[in-house]
Amino acid sequence: MALSSRHLLGLQGVSKEDIQTILDTAHTFREILERPIKKVPTLQGKTIVNLFYESSTRTRISFELAEKRLSADAINFSVSGSSVSKGETFKDTIKNIEAMKVDMVVVRHAAAGTPLYLTKISSSNIINAGDGTHEHPTQALLDMYSIRQKLGRLEGLKVCIVGDIAHSRVALSNIFGLKSMGAKVSVCGPSTMIPRDIKELGVDVIYNIDEAIQENDVLNVLRIQLERKAREYFPSIREYSKYFGITQERLDKNGKDILILHPGPINRGVELSSEVADGSNQIILYQVTNGVAIRMAVLYLLGTLN
């Protein structure tokens, strides 16, 4: 089992076979996570830098745990904002880290394309942990793994991504990944939060949340980023939650047993009501657990390739 690339920059162009390999490998690591001793020596001696240029709690901890459970040496490097403002260029920072002989770099950055840029200035394996509003491949992989575990397949499933599609890296990675795996993908949200050309990616657009619930097997509900510019694209939180928020009442009304995912952190009462966020349709914490297994799989597959 090996992947066709030595980096994971996104799911655009990643083959079904590669995704399957990652999901299958994750499944074996998932079992390890249930053992009393959750550590394997697979990446012993490997040094992995978690380069986080944007604040993140769960993704960083998830990667760090995955690295430690594979016995790699994990180093965290967190800075906020652009390195340019600190006086040192991004390239110089990378060259310095590289000079300390690292094997892999996990990178989170507010600027789209930074992971690809890293592959040009570094010889390490690069893993994208989220770049701007571009991609967040391990999130989409853990979403797909969670769906596959719960519903037994991905092929032919109808999955709707709900929320701010235009400013989401999770949406794009999910669209690429799910489509590769043969799922039927749609997006639902206010028209201002859906890219004008999204249909060119082969996804349907729905503006009515009830319709989205009725027509799909899975809803992947994105976090509305209240703290960001995205806030300018809808009139009020009240209006958003009224027309796009998922409530138990809505689920009951549409009489569907639908699987609900959310990448977290949740805005309770905005995109999900508390009842739904804690209810029987959602698999939010299950996703979090699976996230560690997915990241172990990615690190293992890329780290043992060299």
């Binding site: 394309g113 701007g132 235009a166 794009l172 050309d197 999204i198 990616l201």
Partner: peptide, 12 residues
Amino acid sequence: NEGINSTLLGLP
């Protein structure tokens, strides 16, 4: 430029 490429690249 805004278009399918900016969507694919995730750039503002």
